[in-house]
């Protein structure tokens, strides 16, 4: 899966100036921004009345909860169940 690119890939210079995202604190700031946006998004449920086709999706916070739980389940199942079944060494098919 590894090709030789047309030239060697340049590597970072030792004296490279760190970027804003390189700081752990700033990454935490981004995370907090996301938490706040999420909170606002849920609170909007009080302002806008969502009309669903199914009935149950009009429940407060339905999409938020479904999105969160669904994603967590997806990752955990993939990590703990699927990987256990299908993961093999990288050179599995080479012989």
């Amino acid at each position: 899966m590894t090709d030789h690119p047309e030239t060697e890939v340049p590597m970072a210079a030792p004296d490279e100036r760190p970027r804003w995202l390189d700081s752990k604190a700033n990454v935490t700031k981004v995370a907090w921004a996301l938490y706040i946006v999420c909170a606002i998004a849920v609170l909007f449920d009080f302002v806008i009345h969502r009309h669903g086709d199914t009935g149950f999706d009009e429940t407060f916070g339905f999409y938020a909860a479904y999105g969160f739980v669904g994603s967590v389940l997806l990752v955990l199942v993939a990590r703990h169940i699927l990987r256990r079944i299908v993961m093999r060494p990288e050179d599995y098919y080479d012989d």
Binding site: L34, A41, V42, H49, G52, G61, Y63, Y66, F68, S71
Partner: peptide
């Protein structure tokens, strides 16, 4: 519609939230 947009935004942001938390 307000409803569509809000539902989708909630779904996606909370999916992102799950990623961040994990």
């Amino acid at each position: 519609t307000d409803s569509h947009v809000l539902s989708q935004v909630q779904l996606l942001f909370f999916s992102a939230l799950a990623f961040t938390v994990l």
